[in-house]
Nucleic acid binder design. Sequence first.
DNA 1: TATATTGAGGACAAGAGAGTCTTAATTCAA
DNA 2: TTGAATTAAGACTCTCTTGTCCTCAATATA
Lengths: 143, 143
Amino acid sequence: MLSSACQYGLRAMIYLAQQPGDAYLPVRRISSTLDVSHPFLAKILQQLVVKDLLVSLRGPSGGVKLARASTDIRLNDIVLAIDGQKVFDSCVLGLPGCGHRRPCPMHEAWGELRSNFCSMLEETTLAAFAERTEVGGFRLTPM
Amino acid sequence: MLSSACQYGLRAMIYLAQQPGDAYLPVRRISSTLDVSHPFLAKILQQLVVKDLLVSLRGPSGGVKLARASTDIRLNDIVLAIDGQKVFDSCVLGLPGCGHRRPCPMHEAWGELRSNFCSMLEETTLAAFAERTEVGGFRLTPM
DNA sequence: TATATTGAGGACAAGAGAGTCTTAATTCAA
DNA sequence: TTGAATTAAGACTCTCTTGTCCTCAATATA
Ligand code: SF4
Ligand code: SF4
């Protein structure tokens, strides 16, 4: 459904949203906390910098931080930046040009699932997600 | 969500369910109708033969046909045979061992989506799908 | 029986996604 | 001013999926 890169990106952004204050956080710190490879995560976060979801600073005490308030970034923004629009157009049977005309028999059921998924991503802000993560003792790492 | 192989397999099975009579249908016929590569489809259908969803016969007037009545094969069976159980355990954030303990904040929403998807595959028989395909003028091919 | 037709099976090629590595550019701080 | 820390950028490798190709075995039919 979502690529690994996108999943890592989401987890990193949620982790960043949990950070108090406004300091830059080194990517190396994030990658070791989330237990993903540092070079790979760096490349992913670079994409988010380009898309203006993160700002970065080089040098000592540099790193990365959210470009906007966490209440103003939605999961949707991140998914779109990394995986692109195709996620939201995906189809069960993989037929191109799906749903426009003569949809397949699955379209009614699938279309609803897909739009629910989109709504979930569009409506959830990083802030909401991060808060729930802290309050509920939820996890972002495998263990 | 589903691999290409699985999507091709589904389309082929639906097409087979639409066939009247009980004759064997050559894989080459199926592949050209669905506009997918013949060797690739052949390999996929082989898996379905092994899993007893299809029976095959070599030689002239040989081919492939459903092993059971189309009312007795569910989309679920096909997906399981080709992509395996992992499809039904997939997770938005890709965390291993998901949902068992300390689920992530997305779990409530995602879990429901995932179970709806599973239900759809479990409840839909090939017969139902094929009938809808014919009645509604739906399509199985790109154009 | 001879032959054409078909699936079975395995080796192989191409592509995409995931992940690594190295070097350069930038910036803070001693 | 020097050096260490950190991101930026791109080339590179690995692995898995997708897709191709060729040969062999089976079988209906003439
Ligand atoms: S018609 Fe809808 S459900 Fe069917 S293949 Fe296209 S997008 Fe998927
Ligand atoms: S807890 Fe649920 S939604 Fe969250 S990562 Fe695991 S399976 Fe996915």
